[in-house]
Design a protein around this nucleic acid. Structure first.
Lengths: 334, 334
DNA sequence: CGAAAAATCGCAAACGTTTCCGCTTTATTT
DNA sequence: AAATAAAGCGGAAACGTTTGCGATTTTTCG
């Protein structure tokens, strides 16, 4: 279990360990002959540089803390995947933390990450309170928020243009002939507020009546979408399409509709938001608005890297464009 | 950005920094009055212990490297989630690495993890070759394999009893009246070999003919399941049920069947394996075999902790029981 | 009241790196 | 050939922590 250190190969090579360190790091003040000899020796002896020791003196861990409410969630899993890939390709590693549903744990993990001396933190907030919750720490370490739009808060973030997403979605529904479109979902976060706004803007432009049905739940899951949709369908259905604020909710609606034999897309068109993998399944084929998760993750680590490596100070807000993904749950009507 | 160190609070408290360290760690050789004073001071000054410095002297990072082919995969995301939660509750943090599809990258990331001085490695292998691929490193650091059955290899692992899963699945199909059950899937890993064996065993016991249709793909995805299923359905359907070796494949089969208007479960019963979240969606409701992902993850970190903390040396093989999840894709015939 | 024992605390080494600075040795120039 | 420059390398400090050991003070007890 005892690993070989610089000293070990230095002794074997008959040089000082400073020399070995320089040889490895490609310092120009080492002769090319000794360098080759040392490198070969390191290889033979199985030397790997101890990153924790290196971090000590470099005051840099090449570590990025990634905190997500739950990686066990298709959306965040995808973000986490691309973030890790991108980070590693730039020499960083990811320390993963699930912040769970409560703010206490969220605060705990960012504190923990600070103790670990991460160079930066990438956080997808669990609630609109997250910003306040961890603000005490965000000035101690470069931080960028991911996926949640913070509007004009003094905090860097990258998010999708949620407003635009619902805007193009409703227009699409309109183009298909729909004139009565119900918006299904709460406005408990800025992200969801913006989604509602995009819908409202489109309605105004198109001369449509705005109609809302608010989910009472903070966390959108297919199950609470389902529960709520049952309540919705207990009332008269005087609309021809539903815009669900998330795919999860849309899936719940689908489930309730199937149960009540309300034909989708026959009687009701349905469109979701996020484009999570489950939407692309057979029998589901949910039309939705795609959040460019890959680009979001990549841009977020780029932004973070810029702060870390160049000490960039300002707050930059990166807004990426979502796109419409036409599948099977929206139908043209006459 | 400069964080406060032991020295800083020591100076402020008028004691040596050794005293501060001991006060924080609860050493008995510190007076309770000074201890309280110091703790309060630490709190006021916002001191957090530097884990990388601590790791240096402790020769322990409290870090577990988690390598998965891709967290962007429901099955692994779930494992990752529970592993992180469990690890953190025991004082460990997770360093996440996607090993991707190729062995080179897998080897790269475990090397990298070693350089990071992780206390242990939790790895869900990307292929049967993983064991050989990283064997050079698995004796340098406690390692446990997750989700892949390694049979009698000298390597600790926790996996589901895959053989038992297909066994109970086939029996379930039999009890529903099915006498011609096709097994759909390759046997490219031990895990899948075992799944096939469970099916074979059940067939023998029940006097059923064994019928295989092999997927040519290493990675099972709904898409290649779909492609293959189309080929399958081009031939006469002289069976009444399909046992898909993975849910992903089952989903692909479902897609192909829908396209060809082969009624599931009307004409064909279908059962999958893994119980990924997508199986529980409306319109899908795939009957499947559940791998106890939560327990698997938890047991794996327990096993790893045992190796790390107690230096346990032997190889332990933990096999967890899968269970049948009855949903909507299997029908009684008769 | 004096001595031994117990209770507190400080000193300094150690963990494995990186890098500044200085010391040789060799090459270059006049 | 002497002086200067350049190249190659070693010594040692520093990063922030833990901990064995010694030093000092306080308590205890005969």
């Amino acid at each position: 279990m005892k690993s070989v250190t610089l000293k070990d190969v230095a002794k074997a090579a008959g040089v000082s360990y400073a020399t070995v360190s320089r040889a490895l790091s490609g310092s120009p003040q080492i002769g090319s002959d000794t360098r080759e000899r040392i490198i070969k020796l390191c290889d033979e002896m199985g030397y790997t540089t101890n990153y924790v020791a290196r971090s000590m003196v470099m005051k840099k861990t090449d570590l990025i803390g990634l905190v997500v409410p739950s990686v066990d969630n298709q959306f965040m899993a995808e973000l986490a995947y691309y973030a890790e890939m991108s980070a590693r390709s730039h020499g960083y590693n990811i320390m993963l933390c699930n912040s769970g549903p409560d703010l206490k744990q969220e605060k705990t993990v960012v504190k923990l990450l600070l103790g670990r001396q991460v160079d930066g933190i990438l956080i997808v907030p669990q609630s609109p309170k997250t910003y306040e919750n961890i603000r005490a720490y965000t000035d101690q370490v470069p931080t960028v928020f991911l996926s949640e739009n913070l509007r004009d808060q003094p905090q860097s973030y990258v998010a999708a243009d949620n407003s635009h997403g619902t805007y193009i979605g409703t227009k699409y529904l309109y183009d298909l002939g729909h004139r009565d479109i119900l918006y299904f979902g709460r406005r408990h976060t800025t992200t969801h507020q913006l989604r509602a706004e995009g819908y409202m803007k489109a309605c105004q432009e198109l001369g449509l009546q705005q109609r809302f049905f608010n989910s009472e739940f903070t966390r959108s899951s297919v199950n609470n979408g389902y529960e709520l949709a049952k309540a919705l369908f207990a009332r008269p259905i005087d609309y021809t399409a539903i815009f669900a604020s998330t795919d999860s909710n849309a899936l719940g609606i689908l489930k309730a509709a199937d149960e009540l034999r309300i034909d989708i897309p026959g009687r009701l068109s349905l469109i979701g938001f996020d484009n999570i993998p489950s939407t692309d399944l057979p029998r589901i084929e949910l039309t939705t608005i795609d959040q460019p998760k890959r680009d979001m993750a990549i841009q977020a680590v780029d932004m973070l890297r810029d702060k870390i490596e160049n000490g960039t100070q300002g707050y930059v807000h990166q807004i990426l464009m979502p796109t419409l993904v036409k599948r099977g749950t929206c139908r043209e009507i006459g």
